[in-house]
């Protein structure tokens, strides 16, 4: 996808939606807010000094950390994170199958946690850290889960594989000693139609063992 024309950019500047303004909004470190307490919880009831920026519906800048690198893209607010990755950043390892959060083929890590990139807006992840399957094996070294998937034949057509890999690798990040039940639980949202599940379980348990060594 191309960047918006200069004309569009200047329109956004006029509306007070400069890139800078947006990024500040995303960080929400604007001074002048007061935390109020209600019960045991507190949240900000007061207004910040500046009204929040209304973005879009045209393309707006979003900056985030993608696979360890800071990236900026221009997308419409309606663009999902999955679309942004696939169509704007050409990272097509992340797959879209159901586009509704029912299959987890689009799993990426958001601040280290697996989420469905089809059910998040790209603008939602401004300022956050995203890891895709392409980022799992940086500088040529495969993640042990990826190695084990190859070793144990946990791929067939391969369309669910990136999502499976991301689910299983996330599991090992938080639980280095998983049981078969844990692996099933971690992949319970991932749909595979070819039937790689048994080998996915086997591979993930093998990867866990290998990582402990």
């Amino acid at each position: 996808m191309k960047n918006p024309s200069e004309e569009q950019r200047s329109m956004q500047e006029e509306k007070g939606v400069s890139r800078r303004a947006f990024l500040r909004g995303a960080g929400l470190t604007t001074a002048g807010t007061v935390a109020l307490s209600t019960g045991l919880l507190s949240f900000k009831l007061e207004s910040p000094v500046k009204p929040p920026a209304v973005l879009g519906p045209g393309e707006v800048a979003v900056r985030f950390v993608l696979n360890g690198q800071e990236r900026e893209i221009w997308v419409e607010p309606r663009t999902t994170l999955a679309q942004a990755l696939r169509e704007h950043l050409s990272l097509t390892g992340t797959k879209v199958v159901c586009d509704r959060g029912s299959c987890s083929a689009c799993t990426v890590w958001l601040d280290g946690k697996p989420v469905n990139s089809c059910m998040a807006l790209a603008v939602d992840v401004a300022g956050r850290e995203i890891t895709t399957v392409e980022g799992l094996s940086q500088s040529g070294t495969l993640h042990p889960v990826q190695e084990a998937f190859i070793e144990h034949d946990a791929t067939m057509c391969g369309f669910c594989t990136p999502g499976m890999v991301m689910s299983c690798a996330a599991l090992l990040n938080r639980n280095p000693n998983p049981s078969l039940e844990d692996v099933k639980s971690a992949t319970s949202g991932n749909l595979c139609r070819c039937g790689t599940y048994p080998k996915v379980f086997e591979a993930t348990l093998a990867a866990a063992k290998k990582m402990k060594k």
Binding site: T33, K44, E46, S47, P48, P52, V54, L55, G56, P57
Partner: peptide
Amino acid sequence: MNRFEYVQAPSVKEAIDMM
């Protein structure tokens, strides 16, 4: 999805104001 605008509400008050 239809085209829409997007605002990050900095506070509950503003969210309520805008919705």
